[in-house]
């Protein structure tokens, strides 16, 4: 079995379960402020696993709740981009002609924008919120997927089993959904998993810049921001959220690469 895949899935499942069980495994209320001198900026201890921040809030509890934000943004943003990328890429590759031309020009237009600044601009107009962040990341990250799906459809529609289906009089929708799509999914799974990591990173960066999840609601990015002023004597405020982002993104990349090893058509033909 593929070690990278197992390792990646184990970490993602661990993060996912922590996020789901946040109310159970959090030791404190993530929003509870305690401004007394003995509660503020406490280093990690048995009472506060990851220490406390400048407002006396428990960093561990804030991070457990923050995992919900990071993971849900990652998955939902990628789900939106999958929906757009699969639909447009499929139409483009299957029908070809002027439809393909129009869709590919749209993809090229998307590629022309520096994505991160586009996202920042749109968020500035729409107002920062977690829902807006998900939607905007999804709406700006489908172009690569669209090209990938189009390329798969272009090759698959020339395969003999698709010709055969056409001779049988199989409808276009059945050819697309029954014959082409299931055979086009392998690279899509790989690309989508890698994009989840990317989306989490974008959300963290936006929250870090104050354009994502708004304080006092916790997210890994804004915990990092609030800790950056105390970096020289309260290292736990930046280390733990930084590590959480790093490990989560890394494990999504490991899953993506593990899937690629398994699903690569050249490898699977050799089996």
């Amino acid at each position: 079995m593929n070690m990278r895949l197992i390792f990646g899935i184990a970490i993602v499942v661990f993060m996912g379960v922590s996020a789901l069980l946040a109310p159970v495994i959090a030791t404190h209320d993530p929003l509870e402020v305690d401004l007394s001198a003995e509660a503020r900026l406490q280093p990690p201890s048995m009472k506060h696993f990851f220490g406390t921040d400048n407002l006396g809030r428990d960093v561990y509890s804030r991070m457990v709740y923050g995992a919900r934000v990071s993971l849900s943004v990652g998955f939902i943003a990628v789900a939106i981009s999958l929906l757009i990328g699969l639909t447009l890429g499929g139409i483009s590759g299957y029908y070809g002609g002027w439809v393909d031309g129009v869709i590919m020009r749209m993809v090229e237009i998307m590629y022309c924008f520096p994505t991160f600044f586009l996202i920042m601009m749109v968020i500035t107009f729409l107002g920062p919120s977690i829902v807006n962040v998900m939607i905007v990341i999804g709406l700006t990250s489908w172009a690569g997927l669209c090209r990938l799906v189009r390329a798969e459809f272009l090759t698959l529609r020339e395969r003999d089993f698709v010709f055969s289906a056409r001779v049988q009089g199989v409808s276009h929708s059945r050819i697309i959904f029954r014959h082409i799509l299931p055979n086009a999914m392998a690279p899509v799974y790989v690309s989508a998993t890698l994009s989840v990591g990317g989306a989490i990173l974008v959300e963290s960066a936006l929250s870090f810049l104050g354009l994502g999840v708004q304080i006092p609601a916790p997210s890994w990015g804004n915990i990092l921001t609030s800790g950056k002023g105390y970096m020289d004597y309260a290292w736990w405020l930046t280390l733990y959220p930084g590590l959480a982002i790093l490990i989560t993104v890394l494990s999504f990349n490991l899953i993506g690469e593990g899937l690629r090893d398994i699903l690569d058509p050249k490898m699977s033909r050799a089996r």
Binding site: D160, F161, F163, S164, R178
Partner: peptide
């Protein structure tokens, strides 16, 4: 009418 193709690895889904 129907058709049988050369490569039975490509002609079956």
């Amino acid at each position: 009418k129907d058709i049988v193709f050369q490569d039975p690895y490509s002609s079956l889904n």
